[in-house]
Structure formats: structure tokens, C-alpha cells
Design a protein around this nucleic acid. Structure first.
Lengths: 115, 115
DNA sequence: GCTTTATATAAGTATATGCTTATATGATTA
DNA sequence: TAATCATATAAGCATATACTTATATAAAGC
């Protein structure tokens, strides 16, 4: 396969991943604030495994990274990635997520440990 | 639904549409040159109805427009559309399609009429 | 070490998607 | 007006996707 065809393939894969409302919202939130799964759960009306599966796909594509801190696994964007530029360009056209982040911080699911 | 949620929904829909290798290549080609279906058929290894169905989806989303000229229906990008900015930003990260266009012009499927 | 909390993985399922072939529509030409 | 060419639509089908519930793993606290 030609280099061009391969680049199109990779870009299409990124676009397909971000072409899901939940995943698009996740990366838009992570652009403003790293989050663990239980925090993202406050935003979405779905089960924990479902959110974890979306995070897995984004991680497999290299768009986000994870970092375990004690009990929690924190997710954030992964700017070193080669496909990051495309995602960044897209995110500039996605509305601000301050409202969702406010909801996370009001509920504060990680309150118990005080961190 | 909030305005933000609706905007995310619309953006996700555009990204899902462009998250297909065939459709992404189509809009990348159309950015450089308007084409009719029989021209695009030279590029893709699939049936005519399949290409038509991809074009239909892009048209329904307002990303491309069609213009009948005699027997042929020419497709091109539709910059007046509200979602065009997002697509434009994406297309800046997609490789040049001159090679595919060369293939179209070599074969020249609309040769018969001389236009 | 047992329980709880956070998260991941597995398995199942309904729906969406992208292709195919067959057929319809619409313009051109003989 | 019959035949041809370009394109669209319909129907069918195999695979992909996004969820669910059930279960596994891994860290923290008693």
C-alpha cells in the first residue's frame, strides 16, 4: 500500500474513533483536565465498563495515556503521539467543556481520599 | 438537549462520516477537483452503487453538493455549509490527492462527450 | 488476610454500517 | 421510441459497533 493510502487509513481511523459522541466529549474534557474513570462516569449516562471500553480504544490509538495513582487511573491527552495534530485541529472546533468539568468537581467522586 | 451537547452531536456526526477511508478520500479529491461518479469509480475498487451511497451520505450531511450537467452529476465540496470549517480543518491533515486525480484524468471516463 | 473501592476484561446482544446484486430513473442518441 | 449510458434506490447480508451484565484484577483500609 502506498504511503498516501496508509496516511488516509490512519486519519480515517482517528476520525472514526472521534466520531462517537461519548469519545469526542471525553477527549474534549481531557483537553481541559485529566480525569479518572469515576469522574468521567459523572458526565455520561452509561455503565462503568462502557466508559472504560471507550477509554481503551482511545488509548490503543495513542490519543490518550493513563497513569495509575494509587487506586485511581488518571487519563489525559497524549501530545507526543503522531496523530495528535489532527485531534488538536478537531478539538478547536468542539465546544468548551467547563460545564461538564463543573459537574465533576461538584460531585467530586474521588473526595474520600482527599487528594 | 443543551446547545453544547447538540454541537458535539453534530461534530461527531461529521467525524463519523469522514471516519471512513472511502468517504475521506472522496472529499479530499473533491477539494482539488469536482468529479462525477464514473470518475470516482476509477479510484475505488468497489461497485457504482457503493460510491453513490457514500456520496449520498456526504450530501445529506451538507458537506458536498451535486450539480447535474447533462448525463453526468458533478459533485463538489459545499463551503456554504455550517460544518464546512470542521471538514476544512481535517482536510489540511490529509495527503494531497494529485495521484488519484492523475489516474482519473488518464482514464478520462467522460471522454465520449468531449466535455 | 478480608472487605471495599476503582477499574478492566469477557461474553452476549441489538443495531448500525458498508458492501453486494438487482432494478428504477433520467438524460442522450440512433 | 427504442437502446444506451450515468446514476440512484432497494433489498439482502456479513461484519462492526456500542451497549449491557457478570466477573476478574489490583490497590487501600480495617
Amino acid at each position: 500500500m502506498s504511503e498516501t493510502a496508509w496516511e488516509i487509513e490512519k486519519a480515517a481511523h482517528i476520525l472514526k474513533l472521534l466520531g462517537d459522541k461519548t469519545r469526542l466529549t471525553i477527549v474534549a474534557i481531557l483537553k481541559q483536565r485529566e480525569c479518572c474513570v469515576c469522574e468521567l462516569l459523572e458526565v455520561f449516562n452509561m455503565s462503568q465498563p462502557s466508559v472504560s471500553q471507550h477509554l481503551r480504544k482511545l488509548k490503543d490509538a495513542g490519543l490518550i495515556k493513563e497513569e495509575r495513582r494509587g487506586q485511581w487511573i488518571y487519563y489525559s491527552l497524549h501530545p507526543q503521539n503522531k496523530e495528535y495534530d489532527l485531534m488538536e485541529a478537531i478539538l478547536q472546533h468542539i465546544p468548551d467543556q467547563t460545564e461538564n468539568i463543573r459537574r465533576i468537581e461538584e460531585t467530586n467522586p474521588t473526595l474520600r481520599c482527599g487528594c
